[in-house]
Structure formats: C-alpha cells, structure tokens
C-alpha cells in the first residue's frame, strides 16, 4: 500500500516539475531578441505593401492609368509582405535561434 503511495507521490512531483519547466520556458521566450524578431516581422509585412504601392504608383504615372496598377500592386504587395514574413521565419527556423 505504501509503495503505491510513493509512486503516486513521485508521479505528482514529476508532473509538478514538468509544469514548472514549461512555465519557465514560456518566460524565456519573452526576451528582447523575440521583440526584435517581432519588430523585424512587422517591418517585413509593411515593406511589401509600401514597395507594391510605390511600383504601382510609378507604373500608373508612366502609363497614366491611375489608379489601376496602384490597386492591383497594393494587394500583391500585401501578399508579398506575408511571403517575406514566412521566408524570414523559415530562415530563422533553419538556422536555429539566432536573431
């Protein structure tokens, strides 16, 4: 009877330890490096839209088709921004934690 109690207690302790470990690793993730990564991702996202809009505006200016290209390339720029975020995150995964 005592043995089962011991095992139960041990199990309880292991579970407690696991819980503590996951909690502390969550805290570790909130480092300035993660903030820098987040800042980088946000810039990647916005830069796609900006560059898309700039190219669109330029094409409209050249062909005087305002605002056709601006509208199309704004949307494509948004998609390109998301693609950039994906690529950057993917590159980070491949190289391990670095930035």
């Amino acid at each position: 009877m005592k043995k089962t109690n011991d095992i139960d207690e041990l199990n309880q302790r292991i579970n407690d330890f696991k819980k503590r470990k996951t909690a502390s690793s969550d805290v570790d993730k909130l480092s300035p490096q993660s903030a820098s990564k987040g800042f980088q991702m946000s810039i990647e996202l916005v830069s796609g839209v900006f560059v898309g809009a700039a190219i669109g505006y330029f094409l409209d200016y050249v062909f005087s088709t305002k605002p056709l290209f601006l509208c199309i390339l704004l949307v494509l720029g948004g998609i390109a921004g998301m693609l950039n975020v994906y690529k950057t995150a993917h590159a980070d995964d491949k190289n391990g934690e670095r930035l």
Binding site: I43, S47, G48, I55, L73, L83
Partner: peptide
C-alpha cells in the same frame, strides 16, 4: 500571380533592411 509577388518580395528586401536600421 506568383511572378509579381516574388518580384515585389525581392524589391522590398532593401526597404525593410533600411527602415529597420534607420528607425
């Protein structure tokens, strides 16, 4: 659809590099 997206993605790289450092 993919070619313009990839082209914008390539051209936006210097923009994001610049903005991050300058900011």
């Amino acid at each position: 659809l993919v070619v313009p997206i990839e082209a914008i993605s390539l051209l936006s790289k210097p923009f994001s590099l610049t903005v991050r450092l300058v900011a």
